[in-house]
Write a protein that binds this DNA or RNA. Structure first.
Lengths: 201, 201
DNA sequence: CGGCTTTTGGACTTGCAGGTCCATTTTTGG
DNA sequence: CCAAAAATGGACCTGCAAGTCCAAAAGCCG
């Protein structure tokens, strides 16, 4: 049931997902028609519904998954190596740089606010992304605690939750107002507050 | 050109905006049809286009404006009176309570991520909302600095930007994952960090 | 090679939601 | 009370985009 794709089929499917993702990044979800995807990827309607029998919804879900993975891997290897203050700054810089570069073109901007409405599948994708993201941050905090660079009283998960919220809000404000100030302020001030009272070891 | 609405007309127009706002809150923007608004508000298609010649887009803009104002007035009188730590906590509690109550039902969730795509009008509405919001917070910080409750070295605007980002991100995460933890953590930790090094006066 | 499955192309159907139009009723102002 | 303006109701039009269908081409495997 699941195995019925030849190598060529696999390639075509991937091309559709990538093309749809690009199209959505450029024009937004609700401005993207199946026809646009077909044109960009050089495919036909028959192919779209062959690889995504559930139609647009199923395609959108695949794109969301694809983009969610991208968001995290774009932060590597920094995100998984928050083991010193310079490493934290490097991660911070990467985030700023990346979002500044892509500007309004956020892969899942339209997904975030409407995840709950787009059905349980989309919700799961977003929730999973956020969970992995927050876990990586918390892991970094715990490592810094083990080296005495962050006070042991800090609740790593709670601090990670706050930092993640700051990032998401910063990006949201970048998307809506075009200013990156909020993202910078949130990152810098939150990270700074982690340094306070360090060096206890 | 602008004056051509009788009292009755004014009332009908307001009813349409309020009804559309409610419908959008419940079902989301792209799931809301003009017909739904008509049914809910007991109006006809003729009326809709009479009061909003620009069609759906113009109506949406009016709704956005309406909801943006609502967001701020819902935080009053706390937001304009951040003059003591208990006042800050009261404001914090109001935010939590409010967003917890409305859950997934955020009036402009779908607007935020797509403001730039919905045209300059929507962008202006969102930008204006955020600017007013951030200003009110910064005002509160400055007042606390004047009473010596917050250290004078703190950059009020920058801190307000970070706090606002935390709030927006917290709400976003509430909407996408259903958990209010992020909003709580962002509010509490950011406000706490403002208290550090206070009492200098 | 030869039958099978997968892949592909694209014409066609369909439903629907936004928008147009005009006839009718109500309100306004003198 | 009457004309003009505003408010209302609802039938109708139209375009579009998702989804269906099938027939033809290309690949796979004995």
């Amino acid at each position: 049931m699941t195995r019925a794709l030849t190598r060529k089929g696999e390639a075509t499917r991937a091309r559709i997902v990538a093309g749809a993702a690009a199209e959505i990044r450029e024009r937004g979800v609700d401005e993207t028609r199946l026809e646009d995807v077909m044109a960009r990827t050089g495919t036909s309607k028959g192919q779209l519904f062959h690889y995504f029998p559930g139609g647009k919804e199923e395609l959108l879900l695949a794109v969301a998954q694809h983009e969610a993975d991208q968001v995290l891997s774009d932060q590597e290897p920094m995100l998984s190596n928050l083991t010193s203050w310079p490493a934290w700054l490097a991660w911070r810089d990467r985030l700023i740089e990346r979002y500044l570069a892509q500007g309004v073109t956020c892969p899942l901007n339209s997904l975030l606010g409407q995840a709950s409405r787009r059905g349980p599948g989309a919700q799961a994708v977003v929730t999973g992304l956020m969970r992995r993201w927050q876990n990586a941050i918390a892991e970094g905090i715990r490592h810094m605690q083990s080296t005495g660079d962050i006070a042991p009283e800090v609740d790593a998960d709670r601090a990670a939750a706050a930092l993640l919220a700051g990032i998401q809000g910063g990006v949201l404000l970048l998307l809506s107002t075009g200013q990156i100030d909020h993202l910078e302020a949130a990152l810098d001030l939150t990270i700074d507050s982690l340094r306070v009272g360090a060096r206890t070891a």
